[in-house]
Amino acid sequence: MRQTSERAAYLVLGMHRSGTSATAQLLALAGAELPDNVMPGDEHNAKGYFEPWKISVFNDQRLRAAGSAWDDPFNLPYRALAADAEADWKARAVDLFRAEFGEAPYPLLKDPRVSVLLPLWREVLAQAGVGARVVIPVRHPLAVAGSLARRDSFPVEKSVLLWTLYMLAAEAGSQDLPRAFVSYDGLLTDWRAEVAAMERALGAPLPRLSERAAAEIAGFLTKDLRHNAGEGALADVPMVGPMAQEVLDWFTAAARGQAPARAPLEQAAAQIAQMRTQMGVLVSPVTHALDSTRAELLYERQLAALREDRIKALEDEIGALRQERARIEAVVDTALAGR
Results as ranks from 00 to 15, higher is better:
57 V>I: 14
251 F>N: 05
221 L>H: 05
329 E>R: 00
268 A>I: 06
226 R>C: 11
38 V>Q: 01
274 Q>V: 09
26 L>I: 00
183 S>F: 08
260 P>H: 06
322 R>Q: 15
128 A>W: 00
319 G>C: 02
106 Y>K: 12
266 E>Y: 07
86 E>A: 00
137 P>L: 00
81 L>S: 03
26 L>G: 06
173 G>S: 10
231 E>L: 11
173 G>W: 01
66 A>Y: 04
199 E>G: 11
245 Q>R: 13
303 L>K: 09
226 R>H: 11
84 D>I: 04
39 M>V: 05
53 W>Q: 01
247 V>Y: 06
217 I>K: 05
166 Y>D: 01
215 A>C: 07
37 N>I: 03
4 T>K: 12
8 A>C: 13
273 A>Q: 15
180 A>H: 09
113 R>G: 09
263 A>R: 11
113 R>D: 05
266 E>P: 12
2 R>V: 08
176 D>C: 10
143 A>L: 15
199 E>K: 09
322 R>H: 09
306 L>Y: 08
179 R>M: 11
276 R>K: 15
207 P>T: 09
198 M>V: 03
241 G>W: 11
57 V>M: 03
193 A>I: 01
261 A>E: 15
128 A>C: 14
111 D>R: 04
304 A>N: 04
87 A>S: 13
38 V>E: 07
131 G>Y: 10
304 A>M: 03
7 R>C: 07
65 A>V: 08
303 L>I: 08
281 V>E: 14
319 G>F: 02
101 F>E: 04
120 L>W: 07
59 N>F: 04
122 R>Q: 12
261 A>I: 10
145 A>P: 10
273 A>R: 11
99 A>C: 06
282 L>V: 07
281 V>S: 15
208 R>D: 15
94 V>H: 02
67 G>K: 07
266 E>V: 10
122 R>M: 12
92 R>F: 02
298 L>Y: 03
56 S>D: 01
19 G>M: 02
209 L>W: 14
136 I>T: 15
305 A>C: 09
200 R>L: 13
214 A>F: 08
59 N>Q: 02
78 Y>K: 14
124 V>F: 09
284 S>P: 03
27 L>C: 02
117 L>T: 03
181 F>W: 14
172 A>R: 14
73 P>R: 00
332 V>G: 02
65 A>N: 15
21 S>Y: 00
299 Y>S: 13
308 E>W: 04
43 E>A: 12
4 T>A: 15
324 E>Q: 14
89 W>F: 08
83 A>C: 12
293 T>C: 02
56 S>R: 01
267 Q>S: 15
322 R>T: 08
72 D>E: 12
77 P>L: 12
167 M>S: 04
4 T>E: 15
